[in-house]
Design a protein around this nucleic acid. Structure first.
Ligand SMILES: [Mn+2]
Ligand SMILES: [Mn+2]
Ligand SMILES: [Zn+2]
Ligand SMILES: [Zn+2]
Lengths: 217, 217
DNA sequence: CAGTAAATAATAATCTTTCGCAAGTCAAGA
DNA sequence: TCTTGACTTGCGAAAGATTATTATTTACTG
């Protein structure tokens, strides 16, 4: 099988080299689209796969996140930010870390990969500023959490809470809305998860400033 | 936030420990389902995430494949088979490979991951036996390629070819089907890719035995 | 034992990646 | 020169893995 250097393939390769970074397929797609508006995302994926198979580029696969592609072919490792997904080259003292491998369970070794994780400078700053709420926050790859819309019930509850002053019990909120406490509990959980209400004391809830702005929208 | 030890969570933890392996969420799901038939896959995912957040288990994120979970908490690295996805513990001489990191681009380092890739003993055997066809074959994570169904057009073309004896030109096949040669060319390509037809001579095609059995099904 | 917050089941949604198809290109052979 | 077929592309759809939503249930705390 022989490869052809099509315009699309050439453009993809050029843009990847130009960027000097570690781009995802869709980042590259966005860039290439500026010059070739009709190119398809599948073409970008296809070519990145082919180009890395023939070792014209490198594919970086880090579990639980998007694949990234690297135009630098020399053997090098990477460091990535656990917060913002950014990836940088890692300059290690020696070029190749020697592995004093003991028991390999009978495997024939074909390669090795070293990944270092950390917090990038920007994210360190960010963490300093907002060191208030600490959730179990982890990098998610599924549904993007852009969706913070309120449904009707939630809006109703939030509006009721906005009228209360000071922290109120869920029982009181239920009464204000005119529904059963059990039905309200779900909404409270959802609202808290979205950051629109807060629980300063156990069993008491209060609307947050985020909640107030969300109501206006 | 406090954690509760629910039956589900306990069972998940127990099964993971029992296995001593490196299971994926759905492998674990299958095992737990034997005891709790009504448990949901999302519960398994949720608990594995939580349990690894509180460091009761370890999450293994290995390039380009499903996350796996490990009940062994001690710091250790892994070796995996590029062929069959199997993962084993890697026993390195020293417990911890020291990293002489030079330029870290301002990152605060939080961890490191060393992956060694190889061929497991079983796959070495397998490769020896079947060293015939070599494709660009790479590990895919997307659609499994179990689908080799024929569509109507392909079936029509294949049936026409079955009636011919000996290799025939695509022009003749097109005539037999009663369509334009250009329309047929695609089908021929697809059929050849699936192994249902073969081209013994340039520009001549012939149905294969696989193609004949596919027609009967 | 009651009240509350955390967890569950079921299902839908989301995101990334790949596949199938029909149509286009182009260089080499008839 | 004309054909042919391997290699490509764009499009749409599908698959695979993981997470979100929500009503309901359950485990803790006091
Ligand atoms: Mn790099
Ligand atoms: Mn292990
Ligand atoms: Zn960052
Ligand atoms: Zn193997």
């Amino acid at each position: 099988m022989q490869l052809r250097m099509t315009n699309q393939r050439e453009m993809i390769l050029r843009e990847l080299k130009k960027s000097k970074g570690h781009l995802t397929a869709d980042e590259l797609y966005e860039r290439v689209k500026k010059y070739m508006p009709r190119i398809s995302l599948a073409t970008v994926y296809r070519n990145l796969e082919i180009l890395s198979d023939v070792k014209m580029i490198r594919k970086l696969e880090i579990s639980g996140r998007q694949k990234r592609f690297d135009s630098e072919l020399e053997d090098h490792d990477h460091i990535y930010c656990v917060e913002c997904q950014r990836i940088d080259n890692l300059d290690i003292g020696q070029k190749h870390v020697e592995l004093p491998v003991g028991d390999t369970h009978g495997y024939t070794i074909t390669g090795r990969r070293l990944e270092v994780t950390g917090l990038c400078p920007k994210c360190q700053e960010k963490i300093k500023k907002t060191s208030t709420k600490k959730s179990r926050g982890v990098a998610k790859m599924g549904c993007g959490s852009k969706k913070c819309t309120l449904n009707d019930k939630q809006k109703e509850v939030l509006e009721a809470m906005n009228k209360c002053d000071g922290p109120s019990a869920s029982k009181d909120i239920a009464a204000a809305v005119g529904k059963e406490a059990k039905q309200i509990s779900c909404q409270i959980t959802a609202l808290k998860k979205k950051g629109y209400i807060d629980s300063p004391v156990r069993c008491k809830y209060e609307i947050t400033s985020e909640g107030k702005t969300a109501l206006k929208a």
